[in-house]
Design a protein around this nucleic acid. Structure first.
Length: 597
RNA sequence: GGUUCCGUAGCUCAGUUGGAUAGAGCAACAGCCUUCUAAGCUGUGGGUCGCAGGUUCGAAUCCUGCCGGAAUCGCCA
């Protein structure tokens, strides 16, 4: 049993013995002692002063004295107002360290069995390259998957690629009309960028057609857009695609192939991956069976024009279309189908969709429709809704050219890492390959930490004019702390800690060491909470706290120059566990930590 | 207009199953490298936790109203 639970259990017994009343579990709260007071854990006695019929101070004293007798782990206590501050015996902390110091998986649970969790993230369209918004999505999805895994879940990462539809046809059409056979190989352009250019080209050409039509025939912009030759051709292309026209399909396959090559490069550099990739072209028809099912069950209705609707007004929402009059499916139809497919594929206990908060309504509807259908997995659908990344001037808009491209941003980060590192003169004895590797690790680390340290559900601000910081609460600060520790361990010749017992007497444990141990001890719990909340930010904040504490310790006490051999040995082990923890925690964020920097 | 989310230091963010004097980082200023990496450490200044009520021994945290911002309310995805 964890010592926190032991304390609470003992306190409950004491309250019953001394005050003759059962303490409701919810009123028993143990918290970390704030650093301005002495102690490890603090118990709040306010809820019990009434039943104790004593002052808060007296109540705390009474509980404290009883605890001291009951639990050998507790060495002393002090009382400030209604707070009972408990100090653990140093021996407890030393035992914790010797238990975990060689555990390279500290904080990471093994798989616990049970149904798996599916995490869908990324879900790109194949007509445009990835941008900053996708970066947040990808980093979040990947990290959440890692965290769930570390909490003992079996996890499947999946991607659902939107590879069909009118938007894809637009870039195809533009390439057919204006491309002159251009390929990534012939132009040296990255595949996704090339296709993206043709998508933009379509929009420009369309706009000039629309403008001309409005001038010559005086029709409205809306009307012109609908009837412009290019738009009609794009729709015709979509029809041909749905009829499996050979030529259309072959161009579609070719251009999507280019895009996937480009995406793969971006994903690889970003360090994310998937266990399974779904393609909408293969799944978009799946929802129709469910629509029929709903009609048979009488939970959906077919209107006179043939379209199918679901009425969600009793659930506080509107009526929602599920199938068009011509029988073709809409976004919701597809998502119903893929939810079923995903459940059939994995029998998951939870299906997490990492999708921006602009789709809150859609997922609300999705879940309610699945419930209407009586699907048992309706409650397993969970929308991990994250906030938008905004620029100082507001939302990114492709039309105004303010979209921050994913590849460009990574380039800039690596370049900043290079410049900063070389200014500091830290890589004199690195060869070219080592340097490139280091700059990549630092640059990506800075970017990932910057994004993941913010609570997922909140909108966040990115200012391209100010480069992402490398000092303070940042990825490089954490990476630096790790490199520092590894340097000590190298010098000590103990890159792998030997399994010798700690011999330092417990009373030599100083404040910094104690703080560090206390923080390290929290890591498994932090992982559990981050998994429950699906929040990488909690891992990030914990790791920053840990690094700050290590640096304070490092500054005040020497590890290798400590004359007392037992103390020095203890500090090496303490440093080792800190390095393991930093590395594991950053791993959960998809961030690598260097040996030297 | 309806629904949902957000509002904490000049800026970016922590802190919300209700607990102590609301914390970090950046920016500003002042210190610390003959000792294990100064991407570090220490200190100073900086706050009506959007506003007003309410519940409570105790509210940034829970409830109500208002103000401000965002998203959404398509036979788009």
């Amino acid at each position: 049993m964890k010592v926190e639970e032991k304390i609470l259990q003992a306190v409950a017994e004491i309250i019953k013995e001394q005050f003759g009343q059962e303490a409701p579990a919810a009123t028993l709260t143990l918290q970390k002692t704030r650093k301005e007071f002495e102690g490890d854990f603090s118990f709040v006695v306010f809820p019990f002063v009434k039943m104790a019929r004593r002052s808060p101070e007296q109540t705390a004293e009474a509980i404290g004295n009883a605890l001291l007798e009951k639990l050998p782990e507790i060495s002393s206590f002090n009382v400030i107002k209604g707070f009972l501050n408990l100090s653990l015996d140093g021996l407890y902390w030393l035992e914790f360290l010797s238990r975990e110091m060689n555990n390279v998986r500290f904080g990471l649970r093994d798989q616990q069995g049970g149904a798996p969790v599916v995490v869908e993230y990324s879900s790109p369209n194949t007509n445009k390259p990835l941008h900053l918004g996708h970066i947040r999505n990808n980093l979040l999805g990947y990290s959440v998957a890692c965290i769930l895994e570390a909490a003992g879940n079996k996890v499947h990462k999946v991607n659902l690629v939107n590879d069909r539809g009118i938007h894809i046809c637009k870039s195809m059409l533009a390439w057919m009309c204006f491309g002159n056979g251009e390929t990534p190989a012939s132009s040296g352009k990255k595949g996704d960028k090339l296709v993206g250019e043709y998508y933009v080209r379509f929009e420009t050409e369309l706009r000039s057609q629309v403008k001309k039509m409005m001038e010559t025939s005086g029709i409205s912009e809306e009307e012109a857009r609908k009837t412009a030759p290019l738009m009609l051709e794009a729709q015709e292309l979509l029809r041909k695609w749905e009829l499996r026209d050979e030529e259309t399909l072959s161009i579609w396959e070719k251009m999507n192939g280019w895009v996937y090559e480009g995406f793969d490069a971006t994903y690889k550099r970003l360090g994310v991956n998937f266990d399974k990739v779904y393609y909408e072209s293969e799944t978009y028809l799946l929802g129709k069976d469910l629509v029929n099912e709903g009609l048979e069950k009488g939970v959906f209705v077919r209107r006179a024009d043939g379209s199918v609707w679901v009425n969600l007004t009793s659930e506080g929402l509107d009526e929602k279309l599920l199938l068009r009059a011509d029988g073709t499916s809409v976004y919701m139809t597809q998502d119903l189908g893929t939810a079923q497919l995903r459940f059939d594929d994995f029998k998951a206990e939870k299906m997490i969709y990492v999708v921006g908060n602009e789709q809150n309504y859609h997922f609300d509807v999705l879940q309610k429709v699945l419930k209407k259908l009586g699907k048992p997995f309706a409650d397993s659908v969970f929308h991990l809704s994250y906030g938008m990344v905004e620029l100082p001037e507001g939302k990114m808009k492709s039309r105004e050219g303010t979209v921050v491209d994913a590849d460009d941003l990574m380039d800039e980060m690596v370049e900043t890492a290079r410049r900063t590192t070389e200014e500091l003169g830290k890589t004199k004895d690195f060869n070219e390959e080592e340097k490139a590797r280091l700059f990549y690790i630092i640059g990506l680390g800075a970017l990932k930490y910057f994004i993941l340290k913010v609570d997922p559900k909140k909108n966040m601000l990115f200012n391209p004019a100010e480069s992402i910081d490398f000092n303070g609460n940042t990825g490089p600060f954490i990476q630096y702390t790790h490199a520092r520790i590894r340097s000590i361990l190298r010098t000590a010749g103990q890159e792998q800690v030997e399994a010798i017992q700690i011999r330092m007497p417990a009373d030599k444990l100083n404040l910094r060491e104690r703080n560090l141990l206390r923080t390290l001890n929290e890591f498994p719990q932090v992982v559990a909470e981050a998994a429950a909340e699906l929040s990488p930010a909690q891992i990030a904040n914990f790791t920053f706290e840990l690094c700050k504490e290590f640096n304070q310790f490092y500054h005040e006490h020497s590890v290798l120059n400590e004359p007392d051999e037992q103390v020095s040995d203890f500090r090496i082990k303490l440093s080792q566990l800190t390095a393991i923890t930093i590395s594991n925690a950053m791993g959960l964020l998809g961030i690598e930590v260097p040996e030297r920097m």
